[in-house]
Design a protein around this nucleic acid. Structure first.
Lengths: 220, 220
DNA sequence: TCACATTTTTAGACTTGACTAAACATTTGA
DNA sequence: TCAAATGTTTAGTCAAGTCTAAAAATGTGA
C-alpha cells in the first residue's frame, strides 16, 4: 500500500516521462507537484529504495516495471472516476479533475473494477484520454495529432484535449468545441501560428497556437 | 477543511455521545479509534482550540454545535457511500464499512449531494441507519427497540443493526436474517438471556444475548 | 577546456499525528 | 474519609513529508 504522496510522485514521473520521452528531472517533478526540488530528492530516494524508480542524476528519474504498473493503475482510477462523475453525476468535464485526484487514492481491492463494470467498461474518459484496463493496457489512439499540425482544408474531429484545467475546458465550451466536434482548418497565420477554423456551428473561429497544440484531432 | 484524523475523532466523539447520552471519555475515544489515551488528549486539545469540542476532564468530551454539524456531515457521507456501494455496485452489506470510511473523507462542495440525488434521496443505509439530510436532520425511527427487549409472541421485523462489522453481518447472513425479516420470540432463556425466535424461513433459531442487543426491530 | 548557470543534494528545522513511560488527578468503594 | 482503581496529562521520541539555505555536482556554451 502506498501513501497518497508516493502515488502522486509516481504519477508525476510517469506523466512527465510520457510527455518528454525521457526521464523526469527532479526540477520538473517539483514544478508539476508544486513542491521543492529538495523534497523531490527525498521522495525519489524512497521510491528508489522500494524499487519503484531509478534515478540517474542530471538525466532524470524513470519508473521500474513495478512503478509503471502502479502509475497506470492510478491513471485508470483517475479516468474511471472522471467518467463516473460526468456520465452519472452530471458534472461538467471542467469540474472533475481535482475531485478525481482525491478519488484516485482510495484503496480497495476491487472498487474500481466494479465501477468499470457498472459503467460498461468505457474506453475513454470525458477528455478523450484512453482508460487503461486492469492490466494497464489502453487502446492506442492511432492517427491522432494536434490540430496545429493539420493541413488546410482537411476535415477532422476532436478526439482529445491535452489540458484538463478548468480554464482551458471552459474556453472550449465557450467556443462551442467538444469531443467529436468536426472542424476544418481554413487559414493559417504564420505571424503567431494561429489558425482560423470552421465547424458546423461556427465559421471563422480564430484559435491561438497554444490552443491548437492542446487539441488532439483525427482525420475523418 | 479538516484532516481525516480530525474527522475521525469528531465522528468518534459524536457516536460515543449518542450511544451513552454523556460526553465521550478520552479512554473510550482511544478504544474506538484503536489509539492511545495520550494521543486523544493531544487531539482533543486541538479540537477545543478550533471550537469543535469541549472537554470536562473525567466527565467527557462533547461537541460544540459546529462540531456536531461536522459529525453529521461525515455520517451523511458515510451512509450515502455505503448505500451507493450496495445498491449500485453490488457490494454485500458486510463489505462496505471500511471502504466507506475512506470515501467519507473525500472533500467536495457537492459530490455527496449529487450522489444523493442520483440515488433518489435514500432515507436509510444498507444497515438500516437513517441518512442525515443536507442540514444534518435524519428521520427518527420511532418505536424501534432491541430484539432483546421484545416480549414473547409479538411479531416484529428487523429495521436495523447496531454493529456493522463484517463478522456480525456474516453471522446474520448465515442465519438468514436481514433488514425486513419478520420474527417472533418463542422462548426466552434466563440462564444467558438468549432467545429462541422463528422467522418464515426458519424455526427454533437460538440467538445469544449480544446478537439480540444488536438487532433493532419494530413491532408490526 | 573551463567557468558559470543550472540541477541536485545535504543539513537542519518544522508540522501532524502517533507512541511509551511516567506522573498526576479524580472518582468511588470500603 | 481515604486508598485503590481508573482516567488523564506530560515529557520526550518517532516517522512522514515538507521547507529554507547552503553546498556540491554537472552539462554546456564560448
Amino acid at each position: 500500500m502506498y501513501s497518497s504522496a508516493e502515488e502522486n510522485y509516481i504519477k508525476a514521473i510517469f506523466t512527465i516521462s510520457e510527455k518528454t520521452g525521457k526521464g523526469a528531472s527532479t526540477t520538473a517533478i517539483a514544478q508539476r507537484l508544486e513542491t521543492k526540488a529538495s523534497s523531490v530528492t527525498d521522495m525519489v530516494k524512497k521510491l528508489n529504495e522500494k524499487a519503484l524508480a531509478d534515478h540517474r542524476p542530471y538525466h532524470g528519474v524513470s519508473l521500474t516495471d513495478q512503478g509503471r504498473q502502479i502509475a497506470t493503475a492510478i491513471i485508470r482510477k483517475h479516468r474511471l472516476w472522471e467518467t463516473f462523475l460526468v456520465n452519472h453525476l452530471n458534472y461538467r468535464w471542467d469540474e472533475v479533475h481535482d475531485l478525481a485526484e482525491q478519488l484516485e487514492h482510495i484503496h480497495s481491492p476491487d472498487l474500481i473494477d466494479r465501477l468499470d463494470r457498472f459503467m460498461g467498461h468505457p474506453k475513454f474518459d470525458p477528455h478523450g484520454d484512453p482508460i487503461p484496463d486492469r492490466d494497464g493496457k489502453m487502446v492506442d489512439v492511432a492517427g491522432a495529432q494536434p490540430l496545429s499540425e493539420v493541413p488546410k482544408g482537411v476535415l477532422v474531429h476532436i478526439v482529445g484535449v491535452r489540458d484538463s484545467s478548468p480554464a482551458f475546458l471552459k474556453l472550449l465550451d465557450g467556443l462551442g468545441l467538444k469531443l467529436g466536434t468536426q472542424l476544418t482548418v481554413d487559414r493559417k497565420f504564420e505571424y503567431d501560428n494561429s489558425l482560423e477554423v470552421s465547424s458546423r456551428m461556427r465559421n471563422g473561429l480564430l484559435l491561438n497556437e497554444s490552443v491548437c497544440e492542446k487539441l488532439t484531432v483525427k482525420i475523418l
